[in-house]
């Protein structure tokens, strides 16, 4: 029993030694980031040449990166924006999506921001038919995530349209957002 242990111990030592004197450079240098430590951040929204993007959202509307605050639901194209005359996600149907089916060139994707998160799947049943009939794909998300998705797709230069309804409850926010909002309500015309 003791001998057996010793053998296994020796085996173990051997494998440790073999591993430590391996000539493979990948084992010696851990993979990953091995640059000089200088990185740069590029904020898409601040690049005004890139496209129209969404900076922020609230219960009443959206803030765009061209210093425009939009009130109510909106339909945002890569470089233009329209008001969408609906109340909530229940009003989204074939009729209220009618503009998207007549546009040429065909839209790549519709990013539909549902406002608050919708748990009932029945609401989306009609979109499936619309998507199949007109061969336009949908990305259905709560508005809070739909804004960022739209921004990324737009920055990639896709023919994307964002159909966004302002959310009634805002789930993800920071203390900074609260302070900035209160400052903005004190003086609504100053851009923070």
């Amino acid at each position: 029993m003791i001998i057996l242990r010793q053998v296994s111990f020796l085996k173990c030592i051997g494998s440790v030694i073999r591993r430590s004197i391996s000539t493979n450079p990948d084992l010696r240098n851990p993979r990953g980031y091995d640059d000089d430590g200088k990185t740069s951040v590029h904020i898409l929204n601040k690049d005004e040449d890139l496209a129209l993007m969404i900076d922020g959202y609230s219960q009443v509307g959206f803030k765009l990166n061209n210093r425009v605050t939009v009130l109510g639901p909106m339909v945002i194209f890569p470089r233009s924006v329209l008001s969408w005359n609906i109340n909530d996600i229940n009003d989204v149907n074939d009729d209220s999506l009618s503009l998207f089916k007549v546009l040429v060139p065909k839209l790549d994707i519709i990013v539909l921001g549902t406002g608050d998160k919708v748990t009932e799947r029945d609401v989306f049943a009609s979109f499936r038919k619309f998507s199949k009939d007109h061969k336009i794909s949908f990305e259905i998300l709560p508005t809070e995530t739909a804004c960022a998705t739209f921004n990324f797709l737009n920055a990639e230069g896709r023919n994307v349209v964002g159909a966004l309804i302002p959310p009634q409850t805002i789930l993800h926010f920071t203390d900074d957002d609260i302070v900035k909002s209160s400052l903005r309500y004190d003086n609504p015309f100053v851009r923070n």
Binding site: V68, L71, S83
Partner: peptide, 22 residues
């Protein structure tokens, strides 16, 4: 269902840079 925005520009221009579209 689709409307063009009316743009409201604040009257005091010197201190502001914001625009509102309703």
């Amino acid at each position: 269902y689709y409307k063009v925005f009316q743009v409201y520009v604040p009257e005091v221009q010197s201190t502001t840079k914001a625009t509102f579209a309703g």
